[in-house]
Amino acid sequence: MPQLPRPARLDGAVTAQGGRCFWCGRAFGPLVPPTVDHVVPRARGGPSWAENEVAACHRCNAQRGHRSPVEWLEECLRRGWPVEVAALDRVLERLDAAVGERGGQRRARPYLRGQLRRLAGIMPEDGSRQG
């Protein structure tokens, strides 16, 4: 299945997220443009697939750097941002399914599975927002 071009994938992520940063919840606009954030960082073998991309504000994308998604989620929660724990779980599960279908991603697989296990330990029973 061919991937959409990166700008189209970003537009799709912005729409799916209701025009807000995946991590801090700030609304995108002229002063807060969206950027592509790889949930499993490229440095950890994360692919440039729609399943591994969310829309994030520049501040979140830059401050996160190569931190793991669960580590950054925990930092967002400490900051009191309205990050949705269940949303990260859905993204990681969707990516895991895509890797299973498409194959490859030798470096990303164990990293992704570790993140899912770690997230399961902090996931609230109802998957509600925290903060």
Rank of each mutant, 00 (worst) to 15 (best):
G104H: 13
R90G: 05
L10M: 03
W23V: 00
R90N: 05
A8P: 08
G29D: 13
R94L: 10
G46V: 05
A16Q: 08
P30L: 07
R42C: 02
N61A: 02
V39I: 04
G121V: 03
R129F: 00
R117N: 15
C76S: 15
R20N: 10
Q130C: 14
A16Y: 06
P33F: 09
S48A: 14
I122V: 15
R78E: 14
L92K: 12
D126R: 01
W49A: 10
G104T: 07
S128D: 06
R102K: 15
A98W: 12
P69R: 08
P41H: 03
E75M: 07
L10W: 00
C24L: 08
N61E: 02
R79A: 13
R129L: 02
L116F: 10
R6H: 11
E101V: 15
A16I: 02
S48E: 05
V54G: 04
R6P: 03
R9C: 01
V91A: 13
C57I: 03
W49C: 07
A43E: 09
V83F: 14
A86D: 08
R109A: 11
G45F: 04
A87S: 14
D96K: 09
L95V: 07
G29V: 03
G29I: 04
A97V: 12
R102G: 09
L119G: 09
P7E: 08
L4V: 01
G25I: 02
P124H: 00
V70D: 04
G12V: 03
V54F: 04
N52G: 06
C24K: 06
E74R: 14
A8K: 13
R42I: 08
R94W: 08
A56M: 02
R94K: 14
G29Y: 11
N61W: 05
G65F: 12
G18K: 12
W72D: 03
P7L: 03
V54L: 03
G25D: 03
V83P: 11
R117Q: 14
V83D: 09
E74W: 04
Q130D: 07
M123S: 06
G46T: 00
P110F: 12
Q17T: 02
G80V: 09
P34N: 05
S68R: 15
F28K: 12
G104M: 14
A87L: 12
